[in-house]
Design a protein around this nucleic acid. Sequence first.
DNA 1: CAAACTTTTGCAACTAAGTTGCAAAGATAC
DNA 2: GTATCTTTGCAACTTAGTTGCAAAAGTTTG
Lengths: 147, 147
Amino acid sequence: MLFPTNFIMMENQILNILHRSQLSITDGRKSILRLFLESDNALAHHDIEARTQVKFDRVTVYRTLQIFMEKGIIHTIPTADNSIKYALCRDECEQGHHHDDHVHFVCKKCGSTVCLEDVHVPAVRLPKGFKPQQVEVVVSGTCKECS
Amino acid sequence: MLFPTNFIMMENQILNILHRSQLSITDGRKSILRLFLESDNALAHHDIEARTQVKFDRVTVYRTLQIFMEKGIIHTIPTADNSIKYALCRDECEQGHHHDDHVHFVCKKCGSTVCLEDVHVPAVRLPKGFKPQQVEVVVSGTCKECS
DNA sequence: CAAACTTTTGCAACTAAGTTGCAAAGATAC
DNA sequence: GTATCTTTGCAACTTAGTTGCAAAAGTTTG
């Protein structure tokens, strides 16, 4: 359980993030954002639906994730099994396009997905004619806890 | 249109692949495999359903893709928009686990996805405790034709 | 090449995922 | 506190993916 001071700090952080993204403050947005701030792992849509204290409609969760994406609050992590996960952007991402140049790790045992913020994506040399805009690196294996 | 000799060569190749994978020869498998051999790009499930001359049931396409995966005939390419694409394995992949250590490219203009067989995935240094088994690199941008 | 056997296919029915329009409820501004 | 604008939940829908089963293929054997 969080100490009162930590709790208040997180609530302030939530309001800050929503405010600077010019989003109105609603229970749904606060709850979902809190979930991301409390979790080390990336979250799938159904994680979010399942873990919020108050139940929100699926549509609300979809729309909230969508607008968080647009505002650069979260980013997606593609995984090999076709399940998209979402994670907080640590650095400020500009509206629309992100600078998540870090590597993602998916644990094959426990299924957790994390951002390795300190591991930057390596440079990739492409054949002539291909113009890269974004490089996604997803490493899968066993994580710290599972090995 | 293909010349007769090329056509015969491809039909032989199809039979070879199916035979060495110990799969029985059926119209569905031949058609889907032909589609992969004829195409430079990776194919999504609905591409396959749409492009086969004879229409096959969705279930048949799912099951064919699944068994081709198991036999190491094709591999999946994860993309950021949650749409899995499938592409032929060039080198022989052993049953179950693949050696597709090449980079994939997704064009944001035309949507085509290709294997860059000659671009190998770079080594990634992970923090202590993480044990990598597989590294997926997906580069998106504009492809040869679109730039 | 035909009977016996095995595998694959298509259908039906189902669950899960994702989208859209709209009226009601909630948030913000004045 | 009221007016205005935004967000939410509901209903209804489309698309994606799965499972069981009988019919139709493919394969094997004599």
